[in-house]
């Protein structure tokens, strides 16, 4: 085996260490991870949407609706949409606040976002209780509950994340330089909102 000497760059070494050490270049590692995770979730919902459109295509025109005596509550769904979209705005206000170095505002906007998220979930559950059909009632029931149900589960996951962020910001752990968790949770929350817009448009508007 040949003897080798390791020629590390003497002057460059420290600079390199410092550069890598603080993840100085580009998007923070945790955010990259969250982005990739969101990509996989997009594909998951893609699969569910495929089942929705397939079920819809298998039914004669005009017959794609909840089985009697079930019905869809468009007004309630529209309100829930407004709630979730508003919560995306409030989340973004919070992110901008902490980027400016204002943890107080971050706390306020996160709390509002959390409240709106919980309101959405409560509204969704109320909706389920009023609909008059179940997952086992026709292919409409199956794809409806699967699509909205898994979306709701993802909202719940976001609510958990928001709670953690709220707890940490209350303890003053976020600064302008250091708030990757806020960015990550907000990215996830926007994703959940966008998925809902697709779900709402598909189920309630396109029909």
């Amino acid at each position: 085996m040949t003897a080798r000497t390791m020629q590390a760059h003497p002057a460059g070494e420290e600079a390199a260490e410092a550069a890598i050490a603080h993840g100085a270049s580009g998007m923070p590692t945790a955010l990259v991870g969250m982005l990739l995770f969101i990509a996989s979730e997009v594909m998951f919902f893609g699969g569910l949407f495929a089942t929705y459109f397939s079920a819809r295509a298998g039914v004669p025109a005009g017959a794609w609706h909840p089985p009697e005596p079930g019905h869809l509550d468009l007004p309630l769904a529209a309100v829930l949409t407004a709630v979730l979209v508003a919560s995306s705005f409030t989340m973004q206000f919070g992110v901008w606040a902490i980027r400016r170095g204002d943890p107080g505002k971050l706390r306020l906007w996160t709390a509002i976002t959390l409240g709106l998220g919980i309101l959405f979930l409560a509204g969704q559950l109320y909706d389920y209780s009023q609909l008059g059909f179940s997952i086992a009632d026709s292919s409409f029931g199956t794809v409806f509950y699967t699509l909205t149900g898994f979306h709701g589960a993802h909202v719940f996951g976001g609510v958990v994340g928001l709670t953690i962020v709220l707890a940490r910001t209350t303890r003053g752990q976020f600064t302008a330089r250091n708030h990757v968790a806020v960015e990550a949770v907000s990215m996830y929350w926007h994703f959940v909102d966008v998925v809902w817009i697709f779900v709402f448009s598909t189920i309630y508007l396109l029909r």
């Binding site: 990739l36 990509a39 996989s40 979730e41 594909m43 998951f44 919902f45 893609g46 699969g47 569910l48 495929a50 089942t51 699967t146 898994f150």
Partner: peptide, 14 residues
């Protein structure tokens, strides 16, 4: 893997 496996997951859940 990132993009294909979730589709399988959706199918398996269905």
């Amino acid at each position: 893997i990132l993009l294909a496996t979730p589709v399988l997951a959706a199918g398996l859940i269905a």
